[in-house]
Amino acid sequence: VQEDCVSYAVSLEAATAEDAVEWHDNIGARLRAILHQRFGEGVVFFTTYMENLSLK
């Protein structure tokens, strides 16, 4: 990582895994396209679907 590098992470929650995939494939895809158009190769996308588990 370069000294002048700025990093952001975004975490979103969905009611179901299906809702998360639907958002990712539609609204998320449009948002990624806008960010890529604005920042070009300066932005990297990755998706990790995770589940919240209770630690009782």
Rank of each mutant, 00 (worst) to 15 (best):
A33C: 06
V6Y: 11
V44T: 09
G40T: 04
V10H: 08
C5V: 13
Q2G: 08
V21N: 01
W23R: 06
I27P: 08
S11H: 10
Y8D: 09
F46Q: 13
V21S: 00
S11T: 15
L35C: 05
S7M: 11
N52Q: 13
Y8E: 12
L55Q: 05
E41N: 14
K56Y: 03
A15Y: 14
L55Y: 10
V10L: 13
E41W: 12
K56L: 13
L55M: 10
N26A: 11
Q37D: 12
W23D: 03
L53S: 03
M50H: 14
E51G: 02
A17E: 00
R30H: 12
A20F: 00
T48D: 02
V10C: 06
L53I: 02
I34C: 00
V21Y: 01
I27M: 05
T48R: 01
A29M: 13
E22V: 12
F39E: 01
L31P: 01
Y49T: 00
T48N: 02
V1N: 02
S54R: 14
E51K: 04
T16Q: 05
A17G: 08
A29Y: 07
D4F: 09
L12Q: 06
H36V: 06
A15K: 14
V21E: 00
A14K: 03
A14S: 07
Q37G: 09
A17Y: 03
D4E: 09
G42E: 07
Q2K: 14
S54K: 13
D19V: 13
I34A: 06
H36K: 11
R30A: 10
A14G: 14
S11E: 10
R32V: 02
E51L: 04
L55F: 13
Q2W: 11
E3N: 15
V44G: 07
V44P: 04
L53H: 07
E13P: 02
F39T: 00
V21H: 01
E13L: 02
S54F: 10
L35S: 02
G42P: 05
D25V: 05
M50G: 09
Q2N: 12
D25C: 01
V44Y: 08
K56A: 11
F46W: 10
V1P: 06
V43K: 01
E41K: 15
V21A: 00
L35V: 05
E3R: 14
A14W: 13
T48Q: 02
F45E: 10
I34V: 14
H36F: 04
F46Y: 08
E22T: 11
R32A: 05
L12S: 05
A20C: 01
V6K: 04
E13G: 07
F46V: 09
E41M: 14
I27W: 03
E3W: 09
D25I: 02
H36C: 07
S54H: 11
A9L: 12
C5G: 13
F45W: 08
Y49D: 00
F45T: 03
C5E: 15
A14F: 15
Q37V: 08
I34P: 01
F39D: 01
R30T: 10
E3Y: 14
A17N: 04
S54C: 10
T16W: 02
D19G: 15
I34L: 05
